[in-house]
Design a protein around this nucleic acid. Structure first.
Lengths: 133, 133
DNA sequence: CAGGATCCCGTACGATACTG
DNA sequence: CAGTATCGTACGGGATCCTG
């Protein structure tokens, strides 16, 4: 997502990691804000997964995007990639300790989202009718 | 952000709000995941703000994007827009009760982000040197 | 002062095909 | 099985100008 993209560029003298220190919120959102990040994390929270398992668990994701997200999460130390040198290839992904710290974030995101959505219905009776009837 | 954009389209028979019910996490991220959303919310958590106040508080934001974000948040019932019919125009934005429910989300996002960033340094001493020296 | 109208661009994402 | 390469697209965001 790169929420603070333009900000990062406004002063090239500041190394990136130094910049991120001042924007922990944006950093976290960068981690989980990409389209499939949450799905991948949720899956790995339930256990280690092989690539094709993730593919099946996330219907619609392309292999390109999956590996892209996995690489990014790995770079941030959120997940770990373990390669078994076999034929055919065998790769297994797992959450790191660091990655597990994201669990409360996901929990709150879900909890608050549910509450907000229920209020949305309360405020928009017409919307409900559109489905309920 | 529209994290679940493609998912929303995969079956047009499902009205959007019905779909969102099943994806509270993605819904919440949609709310706060856009580039300036957090900044706007943080500002409004500190009190009501006029448009130009927000502009100054968010250096770099364009008027187009600011109003765009404000409109979106308003549609979701997160903020309220109050117009004082004066010349020159006077518009004031405030958080709704619903909007205040996002506060814990922001808090966790910040807290976890900070912890993750500190770990990032611990694992990457070279990075630290780049700045610390 | 608030914000609409245009034009432009980078990039995240997607579809498809191809390798070891 | 896991992953790369290529090409195409949509959309968020930015710059600038203009109006009541």
């Amino acid at each position: 997502m790169n929420i603070n993209k333009s900000c990062s560029n406004h002063d090239s003298n500041h190394p990136k990691q130094q910049f991120d220190q001042n924007y922990p919120i944006e950093y976290t959102i960068d981690l989980i804000g990409s389209k499939w990040s949450i799905g991948i994390l949720r899956e790995l929270l339930n256990g280690n997964r092989r690539t094709h398992q993730l593919t099946k668990a996330l219907p619609g994701i392309s292999s390109k995007i999956l590996t892209l997200r996995l690489r990014t999460l790995e770079k941030h130390g959120i997940i770990q990639r373990k390669v078994y040198p076999e034929i055919p290839p065998h790769v297994e992904y797992s959450l790191t300790e660091k990655g597990r710290e994201l669990q409360p974030v996901i929990a709150i995101l879900k909890q608050v989202g549910q509450r907000l959505l229920s209020q949305e219905d309360a405020f928009c009776p017409l919307k409900m009718n559109a489905k309920v009837t």
